[in-house]
Computed example of a mutant assay.
Amino acid sequence: MIWAILPAAGTGSRSGSALPKQYRPLLGRPMIEYAMDVLAAHPDIDGLMLALAPDDRRWDDITHWRNKPLRTCLGGAERRDSVLAALDALAEAGLASDDWALVHDAARPCLRVEDLHRLIESATAHPVGGLLAGRMKDTVKRADADAQVQGTLDRTPLWRAFTPQLFPARSLRRALQHAAQENAVITDESSAMERLGLSPLLVEGADDNIKVTLPDDFAFAEAILAARGAR
C-alpha cells in the first residue's frame, strides 16, 4: 500500500495572509485540494493522511476524498513532527512491512500526474526510495556574509528537491524518530534518510511543480493551473 501524507499544520506566515496558506483560494478552491485531487486520482495510492493544526476542524466529517480513504491526525510545530505524527497514526492502524509513505507539500498544487506516476514507478523499484527533483539550470554563486561573490559552483551535480517524496513507511518513520531524538533540522524527508547514510533516488520532475510560499507565488500557481484548464 501507498499512503499519501500531507503535512498541513503550518500557518504559512510568509504568505502574507492570516488564513493558513494551504487553505488560501486558487481559482476559487482551497490550494490543498489541488494536491489532494492528483494524489487521490492515482490508482496506486490507497489513502490520504492529513496532519493538521489543533484547531483545524475542516475535515471532521470527511472520511473519503475522491473515493479514497481520508484520515487525519494532529500535526506538530515542525514538518518533521507532522510527518512523524502521521506515520505514528498509520502505524497504530497497522502498517504492513511493505507499505510506502508518499509525502507531498500541501503548498505544491501544480503536481503533474505524469511526474507522480514516474516517481512511484522509479522510487518503489529502488531499495531506499526517492523524490521528485529538478536539475539546477542557473549559474550558482557562493557568497560571503556581505553578499559578495566568492566563487562559482559546478551545477552539474546539484538538484532542487521537490515533493512528493516516497519511501518505505517503516524506514522513514525510523529516520524521523532518529532525527527527533537528536533534534535535527529536517527540511524534507530525504534529508532524514540521508542522515542514516542512505542515498535516495532523484527522479526528474517538471519545474512548474512550484511551492507556494510568498504572496506573488499565488498568482504564478493560478496561471499554471489555469493554463491546464484546472477548476
Rank of each mutant, 00 (worst) to 15 (best):
I2S: 02
T11I: 12
S13R: 15
R14K: 13
G16L: 13
L19I: 15
Q22G: 08
G28H: 07
P30H: 09
E33I: 07
V38R: 08
L39N: 10
A40F: 06
H42W: 07
L50D: 11
L52Y: 04
P54I: 07
R58C: 13
W59R: 08
I62K: 07
T63Q: 12
T63P: 01
L70F: 10
E78N: 15
E78D: 15
D81K: 02
L84I: 07
S97I: 03
A101W: 01
L102E: 01
L102V: 07
H104A: 15
D105P: 04
R112P: 01
E114R: 14
H117Y: 00
E121N: 06
T124M: 13
H126W: 10
G130N: 03
L131D: 06
L131V: 13
G134Y: 05
K137A: 15
D138S: 14
A147I: 01
Q150S: 07
T152H: 07
D154I: 13
W159H: 14
F167C: 06
F167T: 02
R170H: 13
R170C: 00
R173N: 01
A175K: 06
E182F: 02
S191F: 04
E194T: 12
L196E: 12
L198G: 00
L201Y: 05
V203L: 03
E204R: 04
A206C: 08
D208N: 10
V212F: 06
T213H: 14
L214T: 06
D217P: 10
F220W: 11
F220G: 01
E222C: 02
A226Y: 02
A226N: 04
R231P: 07
